[in-house]
Amino acid sequence: MNEPSRLELLRFARRVVVQQAATSLAQLDRWIADEERRAAERRQGEQRRPPDPEWLIQYGLNKMNVDAVHIGDCWAAKKSGRCKPVTRQQAVDALRRQVAPCVHCHPEAQLA
């Protein structure tokens, strides 16, 4: 049996490299397409996200006690996780009923 010539081996090696490059390029194109899709989904999600409420009421652990009034983007309200969005009038009414204003965002200053 004849051994392949050096030229035949080089041509075979070239075909292997071309095939691997095409496979690698196709994989890279799939990764790029996936990342573009994820970026588009993130942008779409941000556009569809409802705006933050203007005012929040923070409830106690038993959900019957009202603990505080917050401005809608208050970090302390977001951290507590026990807040519900309310209208401006509801926030004013809560403050009139002696519900404590948040010591961080001071909603009473904007509601006065």
Rank of each mutant, 00 (worst) to 15 (best):
E3T: 11
L7I: 10
L9G: 08
L10P: 04
A13Q: 11
R15G: 03
V16R: 10
Q19H: 13
A22V: 02
S24L: 15
S24F: 06
Q27C: 06
L28D: 00
R30A: 01
E35H: 03
E35C: 05
R37V: 05
R37N: 12
R37F: 00
R38G: 05
A39R: 09
A40G: 06
A40T: 10
R42F: 15
R43S: 13
Q44N: 14
G45I: 14
G45D: 12
G45C: 09
Q47N: 13
Q47K: 15
P51I: 10
D52G: 07
P53F: 04
E54L: 11
W55E: 03
I57W: 01
I57G: 06
Q58K: 01
G60H: 13
G60D: 12
K63Y: 15
V66W: 07
A68Y: 13
A68G: 11
V69N: 03
H70N: 04
I71K: 00
I71G: 06
I71L: 01
G72F: 07
D73I: 06
W75H: 05
W75A: 09
W75I: 02
A76W: 08
A77G: 09
K79T: 01
S80R: 06
S80K: 13
R82E: 12
C83V: 10
P85F: 00
P85K: 13
T87I: 06
T87P: 00
T87C: 01
T87Y: 03
R88M: 10
R88L: 01
Q89W: 05
Q90Y: 11
V92C: 09
D93S: 03
L95G: 03
L95F: 03
R96K: 14
R96N: 03
Q98K: 07
V99Q: 06
A100K: 15
A100C: 12
H106S: 08
